[in-house]
Design a protein around this nucleic acid. Sequence first.
RNA 1: GUGGCCAUAGCUCAAUGGUAGAGCCCCAGAUUGUGGUUCUGGUUGUUGCGGGUUCGAGUCCCGUUGGCCACCCCA
Length: 413
Amino acid sequence: MQPLPGFRDFLPADCAARNYTFAKWREMARGYGFVEWDGPILEPTELYEKKSGPEIVDQLFHFVDKGERAVAMRPELTPTLARVVAAHERGFKKPLKWFSIGQFFRYEKQQRGRLREHFQLNCDIIGEAGLEADVELLALCVDILRSFGFTEKDLVVRISDREFWTDFLRENKVPPEQWPQILQVIDKSEREPREKTAVKLGALAEPIFGIFDGGGKSAKLEEVVNGLRLRGLDRFVEIDVQIVRGLAYYTGIVFEVFDRAGKLRAIAGGGRYDTLIHQLSDAAVSLPALGFAMGDVVLGELIGEIPEARSRMELSLGREGALDVYVVVAKEERRPDALEQVQRLREHKLRVDYPLAPAKVGKQFQAAEQMGARLAVLIGDEWPNIAVKDLRTGEQQLVEKDQLLERIASVLK
RNA sequence: GUGGCCAUAGCUCAAUGGUAGAGCCCCAGAUUGUGGUUCUGGUUGUUGCGGGUUCGAGUCCCGUUGGCCACCCCA
């Protein structure tokens, strides 16, 4: 039996890496004053249809439950957030700065960087229409990535503005019902030959290519970059109006993070969605909002690619995984005494392990080594004295059992 | 969803159509109480699964499942 396609088993090393990622996400988000929340993993399918149209259903893990409800495993958090905020916003002072770490699902053929399941950090700011919120969100996104050891040489945040294009389309008298289609063509233009894009754009091709080649100027985007400059983070960002993002609900600044080498899929992405909460609100709540999401899969791949990030993680995992003390039961008749010491050490918040079954002393030291124990404590013939061995230096000292804690503390310090 | 490539031990991979192997890992030993190195020995496969061709299939053919890559889509 294998796991289902696109689903992962997390062996201890994988879990350790995942915990490392989550810890960084949490630490940085909290550092920016974001508070953690979460929603259900299963939602009415309708929640996603309402927001993205019926085609989205093809890409959902969805089914009919025993109560004959059409349900879907969440593919993203934003619709849930909008629903929750619409229902509970009065209970909180604005702006809300909320983050969440959870698992998300989509029914698609898997590929590198795209499974049927992944974990995602979502950070959102609700109730602030000003650009300072966009800057704050971008700064958090960049700082999270910096905390993993990435620099501006490793990745780039490409920022764009949906309004730049909607203004353009309005000026060119394009009927609004055609906007989503044209935005999609712009979004895709980078990945296909220009001739093909030109055909799709028709008369708009010339002015749009002109904007691509001219860089696309926007006072708003300049202001965002300036805001990041004040925080010393502008070196990570580039204005690039070709970024549009596929989702229909974005209304303002949008951005995506890519590796500079261009080998991987987007590492993170987000933007402003000022009208979504209103659309999903039965009570006609209307709040400006913006957010981004960062997935664990592509991020993990990038950590693997960048030596600085990888060694930073390995260092951290080495520290986290290690045992403080391994208790060697050198004489089986001393096992009760050994267990008493194990319990005592554990009550003093030390990480302690010992052999569950009788084993040769050599094997026990091997086990201690393998588990990364800092110290081995040997209980046997010398009892009530105990040998304490520093496994890094090899130094060993005999102490009376009541001095054990003291001795351990002095070595661990 | 469409197309191409791939599938051999727990892992990484060998094996002109002719008796399935190596390294690593794991386990056990090296005068019975001291780890990392070393040495010796050992376990493991219906060659992803199901058919077919052939005297004989890991090898060739068909199907199927899974993986990788591109497209599609991108949360």
